[in-house]
Simulated scan of single mutants.
Amino acid sequence: MSCPICDEDTVIKFRPFCSKRCADIDLAKWLNGSYAVPSQREEDMEADVSENDNAVQRPH
């Protein structure tokens, strides 16, 4: 198994990462929102549509 951050071999202590550094990088990505799972809720989809409608009306 290789580290998802740097592709080095993993270390059992930090699995699935190779080091604490790579584990911390991954955690930081989760905390700052770089990783996101799209929502399937209807309310969120309606909000996206209304935001896109407003974006079309605004001049650039």
Results as ranks from 00 to 15, higher is better:
39 S>T: 13
3 C>R: 04
31 L>Y: 02
36 A>D: 04
51 E>K: 07
21 R>D: 11
13 K>Y: 07
43 E>D: 14
34 S>I: 05
57 Q>A: 11
23 A>G: 01
19 S>N: 04
12 I>M: 12
2 S>D: 03
56 V>W: 04
34 S>N: 06
41 R>C: 14
43 E>T: 13
4 P>C: 14
59 P>H: 05
32 N>T: 12
47 A>Y: 01
3 C>P: 01
10 T>N: 04
53 D>N: 13
11 V>C: 11
18 C>Y: 05
49 V>I: 15
58 R>A: 14
38 P>Y: 10
35 Y>K: 06
1 M>V: 13
6 C>G: 04
2 S>P: 00
22 C>L: 07
13 K>Q: 08
58 R>P: 00
56 V>R: 07
11 V>R: 07
6 C>W: 03
6 C>Y: 03
55 A>Y: 09
30 W>M: 12
53 D>G: 09
2 S>C: 06
38 P>M: 13
60 H>N: 00
29 K>P: 00
5 I>P: 00
20 K>W: 05
52 N>C: 05
7 D>Y: 03
30 W>P: 00
60 H>P: 00
43 E>H: 09
59 P>Y: 06
4 P>S: 15
56 V>Q: 05
16 P>H: 10
16 P>R: 12
60 H>C: 02
33 G>E: 02
28 A>N: 08
6 C>K: 02
17 F>Q: 05
59 P>K: 08
40 Q>F: 15
17 F>Y: 13
44 D>Y: 12
10 T>R: 06
20 K>T: 05
56 V>C: 08
15 R>I: 13
11 V>H: 06
44 D>E: 14
14 F>K: 03
7 D>F: 07
14 F>I: 10
57 Q>S: 08
13 K>R: 07
22 C>A: 08
59 P>R: 10
4 P>D: 12
15 R>Y: 15
25 I>A: 03
41 R>S: 15
52 N>Y: 04
58 R>I: 11
13 K>F: 12
31 L>Q: 08
10 T>V: 15
46 E>K: 11
48 D>I: 06
20 K>Y: 08
30 W>I: 09
9 D>A: 12
34 S>L: 08
47 A>H: 01
8 E>V: 06
39 S>D: 10
9 D>Q: 02
40 Q>W: 10
55 A>S: 11
15 R>K: 13
44 D>C: 11
33 G>W: 01
7 D>V: 08
44 D>A: 14
11 V>K: 08
60 H>Q: 00
3 C>N: 06
3 C>D: 09
26 D>F: 02
23 A>R: 01
41 R>M: 15
57 Q>R: 08
31 L>V: 06
6 C>D: 05
41 R>Y: 12
29 K>Y: 04
14 F>P: 00
54 N>K: 12
32 N>A: 09
42 E>K: 14
31 L>G: 03
5 I>E: 04
15 R>M: 14
47 A>N: 01
27 L>Q: 03
2 S>Q: 05
2 S>G: 02
32 N>C: 14
